[in-house]
Computed example of a mutant assay.
Amino acid sequence: MPEVRIEAEPRTEFGKGASRAIRREGRVPAVMYGHGAENRHFTLPEHELMLALKTPNALIRVEGLPGRAALALPKAVQRHAIKGVIEHVDLIEVRSGEKVTVEIPIRVNGEVFSGGILDQQMVQLSVEAEATHLPDGVDVDVEGAQIGTQVFAKDLTLPKGTTLAGDPEALVLHVIEPRSQAQFDEEIGEGGEETEAPVEVPPAPGAAEAAE
């Protein structure tokens, strides 16, 4: 995965007011941590950061930091609930040759047997790979897959240099038979008369003594 170079600017003021002012200038507050170093606070240009984050597990070379540039992966991205703009980003520093665990997208290719329905249980896969050679995803071919076909995490062909980090027995997808109308009605409780469990009414105060 190619590096994305982004120029950082030091951040010296903190708090909600300072953060709002930073965002009005078209920049995003950011913090980077990792390798036992103190957290480093800075700002990044919003537009460049937004473009970089369109790629899963974007490898970002943060320039302009004191001492040297640093390679980092996005750890957490905070967005505005309505506008969707990036409000804050947490980065974790990585180094060349270092192994990291990340989530990569699962891409499904092909069409299953015409009488079946594809039920995809997982859309991402947890893998371990070198920080500077992260895969952009893993492909699974379902062309012509018959009803009853199951694909587990251990069945996926991972990119070179990548190993599975999650449960190998996790179900990624399977091909199921379409439900009949009767099965659908039964599931939503419309296949027959519903029976309600009897409701136990507690005795009125003093009733037990009166019955004795």
Score class of each variant (00 low, 15 high):
65 L>N: 11
49 L>Q: 05
98 E>I: 05
115 G>R: 12
124 Q>T: 15
74 P>K: 09
140 V>R: 02
84 G>H: 04
39 N>Y: 01
122 M>K: 13
68 R>C: 01
143 E>Y: 06
32 M>D: 05
97 G>R: 11
136 D>R: 14
36 G>E: 04
144 G>E: 11
75 K>H: 12
74 P>R: 03
44 L>Y: 06
108 V>Q: 02
138 V>S: 02
118 L>M: 13
59 L>H: 05
92 I>W: 06
129 A>R: 04
131 A>S: 12
137 G>Y: 07
124 Q>S: 15
128 E>Y: 01
77 V>G: 08
87 E>N: 14
34 G>N: 06
107 R>S: 09
135 P>G: 06
102 V>P: 01
44 L>D: 03
123 V>E: 10
42 F>Y: 09
47 H>W: 11
64 G>Q: 07
119 D>N: 14
149 T>P: 00
127 V>I: 11
152 F>N: 10
109 N>R: 14
108 V>H: 02
115 G>K: 12
153 A>V: 03
49 L>V: 10
124 Q>I: 04
107 R>M: 11
70 A>S: 12
104 I>D: 03
80 H>Y: 10
107 R>L: 13
90 D>L: 05
94 V>F: 02
31 V>S: 02
88 H>I: 08
79 R>M: 04
89 V>S: 05
93 E>D: 09
53 L>N: 04
41 H>D: 01
135 P>S: 07
66 P>D: 10
33 Y>P: 08
142 V>L: 09
156 L>G: 04
61 R>N: 15
149 T>M: 10
62 V>G: 07
83 K>E: 12
104 I>Q: 05
88 H>Q: 12
30 A>D: 00
59 L>A: 07
146 Q>E: 15
141 D>G: 07
33 Y>W: 08
129 A>G: 02
33 Y>F: 13
146 Q>S: 15
50 M>V: 14
35 H>W: 09
72 A>Y: 05
53 L>Q: 06
131 A>I: 08
47 H>C: 00
47 H>D: 14
67 G>P: 06
90 D>C: 06
48 E>V: 10
113 F>S: 15
71 L>E: 04
31 V>Y: 06
81 A>H: 15
104 I>G: 03
73 L>G: 08
127 V>G: 03
35 H>D: 07
76 A>L: 13
46 E>G: 12
136 D>G: 11
130 E>V: 05
75 K>R: 14
134 L>H: 03
141 D>F: 10
134 L>E: 03
113 F>Y: 14
134 L>I: 01
156 L>R: 04
128 E>K: 11
144 G>N: 12
62 V>T: 05
133 H>S: 14
150 Q>W: 02
104 I>Y: 04
101 T>M: 06
131 A>R: 03
51 L>N: 13
61 R>C: 14
98 E>K: 07
106 I>S: 02
63 E>G: 12
119 D>C: 05
68 R>T: 13
88 H>M: 10
60 I>L: 09
119 D>A: 15
30 A>Y: 02
126 S>P: 00
60 I>M: 08
124 Q>L: 00
44 L>K: 08
62 V>R: 02
96 S>K: 15
48 E>I: 08
126 S>C: 01
97 G>Q: 12
151 V>A: 05
81 A>I: 13
84 G>D: 08
133 H>I: 01
